[in-house]
Write a protein that binds this DNA or RNA. Structure first.
Lengths: 196, 196
DNA sequence: GTCTATAACCCGATAGAC
DNA sequence: GTCTATCGGGTTATAGAC
């Protein structure tokens, strides 16, 4: 079963949006990368923005199979899973000379007045990520103090990753990403040792 | 002394880049907002990107007078200064319905393959911010454990702010920003009480 | 230094045959 | 479903008078 045209368009757009951003990717770029003609794209999608919606939906459905499962392979401890996920983002930065970060975050900051449907899907992607990490901290149980807000801790992990990617991408160095993750690790360690 | 044409262009571009981003702001937008004609802009600047360079340079020179001094007015304690600065970003989000965040961060993620001069100025802006916050943590002296890396802590504060802005802008709610800053505050509190 | 007009180009989207 | 050709409009930047 060869990949159908629609999937080829979405996949090509996903790669291009991650590499160059949404605004800097032209429909012609997508057509060329997908090996498809304009008529086909506009047969499946009303316009460029609807391609973005399909891409964001693909990211959303891919959170578990494409993001979390690879990162968590062989890692059972819930707290280690949080840092295993961050380590996967580090590898993405490392293997692209600090060029490739989190595509959701990039698009979220690129679009200043996004269409409501786009903004909704961006938010859903963050929520999916946060739910998974919150669950890790919940599963950590009494290794963390009871009064520590698991959801807020998940948000903190996300800001650490996104902020670290932003600064590392800007100075083309992993220092900032590593500094931020190291501080988060120290914080979580101190929480684990609190009250013992 | 009326503001000269060049300054009007840079100021108008600064506002527009912050509101709509660099790519979505046309030269015509800048001309209209500045009340200036195309010939004037291209007399002072070789092109649009050079206007961006001037804007980033203005942000860099404005870090102390425009950003830090207002945030730190009446705040002497170095650690409180860190959170006073974060509170100022919160007010910017709040007063714009979570639309306006950090313009440097937005541009940093919008431009995927920035001109070296642009990337250099973005990095310098981050460095200026980090130097100031690092200095706060240094001035905190022995209120923080000696083995805590002051620079890394400053990076952590920056990722908290930038990541918090990103997520709050996306879901148009201050929850994420507040969660992240609350966690950072808890971490700093625990550091202050460590070893006592 | 400032103005108007316009060149030269690229964009997203469409039309209509097949 | 797919193809080619093209429309209409917005873009950055320039030319040349003043």
């Amino acid at each position: 079963m060869p990949p159908d045209t629609k999937d080829k368009i979405v996949y090509a757009a996903m790669m291009l949006f991650a590499q160059k951003g949404y605004g800097s990717t032209s429909v012609a770029d997508i057509l060329h990368a997908a090996g498809v003609n304009a008529g086909s794209l506009y047969y499946f999608f009303p316009g460029k923005q609807d391609v973005l919606l399909a891409v964001l939906d693909a990211y959303l459905r891919g959170i578990h199979p494409m993001l979390l499962e690879p990162a968590w392979k062989g890692v059972a401890d819930p707290i280690e899973r949080v840092f295993a996920l961050l380590a996967q983002y580090r590898r993405a930065l490392e293997s692209t000379e600090c060029t490739y970060g989190c595509p959701i975050g990039s698009i979220a900051l690129e679009l200043h007045e996004p269409d409501p449907a786009v903004r909704q899907l961006l938010a859903s992607n963050f929520v999916g990520w946060l739910n998974a990490i919150e669950q890790c901290f919940i599963e950590a149980g009494d290794r963390l103090p009871a009064d520590v807000d698991r959801r807020a801790l998940a948000v903190f992990a996300l800001t650490t990753m996104e902020g670290g990617v932003m600064i590392s991408r800007t100075d083309r160095t992993l220092h900032a990403f590593d500094d931020a993750v190291r501080m988060l690790r120290d914080y979580v360690n101190r929480l684990q040792h609190a009250g013992r």
